Simulated assay, not measured.
Amino acid sequence: MSLVKNDANHEPIASVFNLLSSDAKLVIPVLEELMLKHLSKRAHILDIGCSNGKIVQQLQIRGYQTTGLDVSE
């Protein structure tokens, strides 16, 4: 289900982002240092613009409740 009509220019950008961010495991240590250390393990994290959802998946593995939203399919 899509609530937003995708901009024709969005999908190519999303595809490039997916290639560049293919290893979300590299992002998690940065998030831990900047913000996760301040949250309880029961925190619910909303990732707006989650792209391929790989960061959301890594957060779930670590026990966080997550919701990921993105306009790309």
Rank of each mutant, 00 (worst) to 15 (best):
P12C: 10
V71H: 00
L3K: 08
V30R: 02
Q58E: 13
P12Q: 05
N18E: 06
G49Q: 08
I61H: 14
L19K: 15
D47I: 02
E32D: 13
H38L: 14
G68L: 03
R62P: 01
L59W: 03
K54R: 00
I45D: 07
S40I: 11
N9E: 14
H10P: 02
K54I: 01
Q57C: 04
E33V: 12
L59S: 01
S51Y: 00
L3D: 07
L3E: 12
S15F: 11
E33W: 02
N52W: 00
C50L: 02
H44E: 08
Q65G: 01
H10W: 13
I28C: 09
D23G: 01
V56A: 07
G63K: 09
V27G: 00
A8C: 13
D70Y: 09
D47E: 06
I45H: 08
L19R: 15
F17W: 10
D70W: 08
K37T: 13
G63F: 06
S51M: 01
S21N: 09
V16L: 00
L20V: 01
Q58S: 08
P29C: 11
L59P: 04
E32C: 06
A8K: 10
N52E: 05
L36E: 09
N52F: 04
Y64M: 11
D70V: 10
L31Y: 06
G49A: 11
R62K: 14
I13S: 10
E11N: 15
V16F: 00
E32S: 12
Q60H: 05
A14C: 08
E32L: 06
D23Y: 14
V30C: 03
L20A: 11
A14R: 02
L31A: 13
L69K: 15
K54E: 13
V4I: 13
F17C: 12
I28E: 08
D70N: 11
I13W: 09
N9K: 14
N6D: 15
N6Y: 01
S22H: 07
Q65I: 06
P12K: 03
N6Q: 15
L39E: 02
S22Y: 02
I28R: 03
P12D: 04
D7E: 12
Q60R: 12
I45E: 08
S21H: 06
K54S: 07
H10S: 10
Y64E: 09
D47L: 01
L26D: 05
L20T: 04
Q58M: 07
V56P: 01
G49R: 12
L34R: 11
V71N: 02
E33C: 11
N52D: 09
V16Q: 04
G53R: 04
C50H: 00
N6E: 15
V30F: 03
P12T: 06
C50F: 04
G49F: 07
H38W: 12
I28S: 03
D7A: 07
I45G: 01
L46R: 07
S22D: 07
I61A: 13
A8W: 10
R62I: 05
E73P: 00
Y64F: 15
A24P: 10
L46V: 06
T66M: 12
E73L: 11
K37N: 15
L26C: 01
C50S: 02
Y64T: 04
